[in-house]
Amino acid sequence: MRLVDHMALLTPLDWCAAGLIILSWFTIGWWIEHPGAKHPSVTVLMGERRREWMRVFVTRDPRIFDSQILASLRQGTSFFASTCLLAIGGVLALVGNTAPLQGVAAEVSEMPVPVLIWQLKLGLVVLFLTNAFLKFVWANRVFGYCAVIMASVPNDPDDPKAYPRAAQAAELNIRAAINFNRGLRSMYFALGALAWLLGGWALIAATAIVVWIVWSREFASIPRRILIEKDV
């Protein structure tokens, strides 16, 4: 009964706010990866550029430039994966010792908050961070697959395997990038989920801000405008 009593301290607003941020995370991710043909996202536009990259790659000699680009992409995934691990460790440490949060809460509210409630709210943050970590690790591995396929592309553009193999590399590159972007979005929502510590309304407001930031960078940013410009 004690667990049930503690869970009852979460108001309907809290549950709605938690459901909203998870639904928003899923919805904006699906929208970015499946936009309408008339309004492509930066993710979709960059996917086409990655295919063009692999087509040019077939005839480029030497190919050191391409290997350096791919290496930098893998370094980016490694950096964010390491960052997520550090963040997860920090949040889990706070889950194990919620005294600092209880001290802050005591200054703004006379009603004591059970440790379990703090842990539950921080658990949502850990959920997003863990998903981000897994996406970054998988992106790094798929970029590795892409590197192997790129290395197997014949040097002779007239070889019948050259362009099909390059197309495979392009699709692997795109899948790695998609997972990298999913990891970044999870990190954005993890930051937004921290607002739940301040209450349900704060989480709703933070969710709206995060969704706007993610949407604007994919559909209303200067990089997108540059990408949709016609080649001269």
Score class of each variant (00 low, 15 high):
123 G>S: 07
94 L>N: 01
136 F>A: 05
61 D>K: 15
48 E>C: 08
16 C>H: 13
145 Y>K: 08
193 A>K: 00
226 I>S: 10
18 A>Q: 11
132 A>K: 02
199 G>E: 02
70 L>W: 10
79 F>L: 08
27 T>A: 15
61 D>H: 15
108 V>Q: 09
37 A>Q: 15
144 G>P: 01
181 N>I: 01
189 F>E: 00
116 L>C: 05
153 V>S: 06
48 E>Q: 15
73 L>G: 03
73 L>V: 02
126 V>P: 01
167 A>R: 09
60 R>S: 11
210 V>I: 14
223 P>Q: 06
225 R>S: 06
161 K>T: 08
215 W>C: 05
104 V>S: 10
201 W>E: 03
22 I>L: 15
73 L>D: 08
35 P>F: 05
95 V>K: 12
10 L>R: 15
184 L>W: 04
229 E>W: 12
138 W>D: 12
186 S>K: 02
35 P>V: 07
207 T>N: 01
85 L>R: 07
119 Q>C: 08
226 I>A: 14
74 R>V: 01
79 F>A: 05
75 Q>A: 13
190 A>H: 01
190 A>Y: 01
168 Q>P: 00
190 A>I: 01
138 W>C: 08
205 A>V: 08
158 D>G: 11
126 V>A: 04
195 A>E: 04
18 A>M: 15
179 N>L: 09
119 Q>F: 06
229 E>Y: 09
128 F>E: 07
3 L>W: 13
114 P>V: 01
131 N>F: 08
200 G>F: 02
188 Y>H: 07
71 A>P: 04
223 P>T: 06
188 Y>V: 04
43 T>D: 11
85 L>I: 07
224 R>A: 05
63 R>V: 02
156 D>V: 13
132 A>D: 00
142 V>A: 08
110 E>G: 07
111 M>V: 15
108 V>D: 06
55 R>K: 12
17 A>N: 10
51 R>A: 13
17 A>T: 14
90 G>E: 00
47 G>Y: 11
168 Q>G: 07
111 M>S: 14
228 I>T: 11
106 A>C: 11
211 V>M: 05
190 A>M: 00
162 A>S: 10
72 S>T: 08
156 D>F: 10
180 F>T: 01
36 G>V: 03
39 H>Q: 14
163 Y>R: 13
136 F>G: 03
213 I>T: 07
40 P>I: 10
37 A>N: 14
153 V>C: 05
210 V>W: 05
108 V>I: 14
72 S>H: 04
179 N>K: 04
175 R>V: 02
76 G>A: 13
212 W>I: 08
65 F>P: 03
145 Y>H: 13
47 G>A: 11
209 I>R: 04
12 P>N: 13
176 A>S: 06
43 T>H: 09
109 S>H: 05
160 P>K: 12
33 E>K: 04
188 Y>A: 02
20 L>I: 05
216 S>K: 10
92 L>K: 04
24 S>P: 05
132 A>R: 01
25 W>A: 10
144 G>M: 00
170 A>F: 05
122 L>F: 01
147 A>I: 00
42 V>K: 14
49 R>T: 14
103 G>E: 13
41 S>M: 09
210 V>K: 04
37 A>P: 12
132 A>M: 02
13 L>V: 13
162 A>K: 06
115 V>L: 01
225 R>N: 08
231 D>R: 13
161 K>I: 05
18 A>F: 09
172 L>V: 03
34 H>E: 12
